[in-house]
Simulated assay, not measured.
Amino acid sequence: MSLPAPLDRAEAVVFDAYGTLLDVHSAVQRHAAAIGPEAQTLSETWRQKQLEYSWVLALCGRYAPFWTLTERALDYALAKHPGVDRGARGDLLEAYKALDAYPEVPGTLGALRRAGLKTAILSNGDTAMLDAAVRAACLGDHLDVVLSVDPAGTFKTSSRAYDLAPERLGVARERIVFLSSNRWDIAGAAAYGFAPVWVNRTGQPDEYPDLAPVRVIPSLGGLLA
């Protein structure tokens, strides 16, 4: 199978999980009818605060499991949107443990492995939540390794977090293609020395011009095109 750049020079393809393989908004979408008209903004607030908490802790040299940050972020989102019944909290957290995979994910992962490439997740998610998410989305058979940043004790974009992929896969960083839907994560991967591919699912404007992706695709389906 002839692979397009940068896959033609790669030995492994590593994916961010949340927002890249898994739809982070699917938890709220499942309960949108019960939540009401604030469902979309609630979900956006939840996601933004979840990421913000990880950045602040990393900058402060501190760490907490990503699931803890997910709970704290939801509590903030519910406080910010008082029109939403707080009784939905438990259902939303349970739904977040089993997020929907984007429809093209299993086929893309399968094609990469058939092409002889190693596949892995490298995520801020802690081990327990990643295990649950991968199991619920039935992705385990398509992945060689699922890596949480837990052993590094910090979050991406720290180089200690990215170090986990080449160390565990036994592949030099320059032979790893890294995919994320988060532009900040792509910037970190570029600085680290991966070949980063930005999965720009929502058509966001580019930023971080000095830390550019090697490719931009609208979904994982574009990776093999």
Rank of each mutant, 00 (worst) to 15 (best):
A79Q: 12
R135M: 04
Y102C: 05
A101R: 00
A111C: 07
L112F: 03
G90A: 14
E94H: 06
E71N: 11
R86I: 00
G83R: 05
K118W: 04
L130Y: 02
L143E: 08
L74R: 11
A133D: 03
A132Y: 01
D131P: 00
V105T: 05
D141Q: 13
T68K: 14
G83D: 06
G116F: 13
L122V: 12
L78I: 09
H142A: 10
D126C: 10
D91G: 11
A133E: 01
A77S: 13
E94L: 13
W67M: 13
H81R: 07
R114F: 01
L122M: 11
C138K: 14
A88M: 12
A111K: 14
A101T: 04
T119H: 03
I121S: 11
G107H: 01
R113P: 02
K118Y: 08
P103V: 01
H81K: 00
A136R: 10
L99S: 12
K118E: 06
L109W: 04
L122F: 05
R86T: 13
C138Y: 10
H81A: 09
F66R: 13
D126W: 01
D131R: 13
T70H: 11
G125N: 02
E71T: 14
M129D: 08
A133V: 09
A132I: 11
L112W: 01
G110K: 03
V105H: 04
S123Q: 09
T68S: 15
L122R: 05
I121R: 10
T119W: 09
D144S: 08
V84R: 07
M129H: 04
W67D: 12
L139V: 02
E71H: 12
L143T: 10
G90Q: 13
A128L: 04
T127D: 14
D126L: 08
E104L: 01
Y102D: 05
A79Y: 06
L92Y: 02
R113D: 05
R114W: 00
W67A: 14
R113A: 03
A98Y: 04
M129T: 15
V134C: 03
T108V: 15
G107D: 10
L99K: 08
D126P: 02
I121K: 11
E104S: 02
A111I: 10
K118F: 02
E104N: 00
L109C: 06
A73R: 07
L112T: 05
A132M: 07
A73T: 04
K118M: 09
L130G: 01
H81Q: 15
L74E: 05
L78C: 08
S123F: 09
L109M: 06
S123T: 11
K97C: 09
A115R: 06
A77C: 11
G116D: 11
F66K: 13
L78M: 06
K80T: 15
L92D: 00
P103W: 05
N124E: 07
K118D: 00
L143P: 04
V84I: 12
L130C: 07
T127E: 15
H142W: 09
K97L: 14
L112P: 01
A95M: 08
A133P: 00
